[in-house]
């Protein structure tokens, strides 16, 4: 099964040590055949709102910046527990903050 792990934005500035540890973690997850895709997201972005026939396009940044997703990892694991365990390892590296793990339903079912 697949899970999307997202990390919410925080104020902390990443340092050199974090980059090294993250790179190592990503390498390991890739080598284990778990990590399918990962990436960081620009702050803000573009927001599209539809109401009735009307679609409104708004450029960021937005007020509720702390709810925004800053990065994601798409992982393929055997169980929800496995996804949670990997999430724990990720949080241990990045420090204080919030991540969300959601199962992905898609072509693979």
């Amino acid at each position: 099964m697949r899970f999307l792990m997202t990390a919410l934005a925080d104020d902390a500035k990443p340092d050199e040590k974090l980059f090294t540890e993250m790179a190592k973690f990503i390498d390991e997850m890739t080598a284990a055949g778990i990590l399918l895709a990962t990436g960081g997201l620009e702050p803000g972005g573009v927001r599209l709102t539809s109401a009735g026939d009307e679609i409104t396009v708004t450029d960021g940044p937005f007020a509720e910046a702390r709810e925004a997703v800053a990065g994601f990892a798409l992982i393929e694991v055997r169980s929800r527990e496995e996804a949670i365990e990997l999430g724990r390892r990720f949080r241990a590296i990045v420090g204080d903050g919030v991540s969300v793990i959601q199962q992905v339903y898609g072509p693979q079912g």
């Binding site: 055997r78 527990e81 496995e82 365990e85 990997l86």
Partner: peptide
């Protein structure tokens, strides 16, 4: 137990 099992498999 499920957590231990997941860690074990990893």
């Amino acid at each position: 137990r499920r957590t231990v099992d997941a860690v074990w498999k990893l």
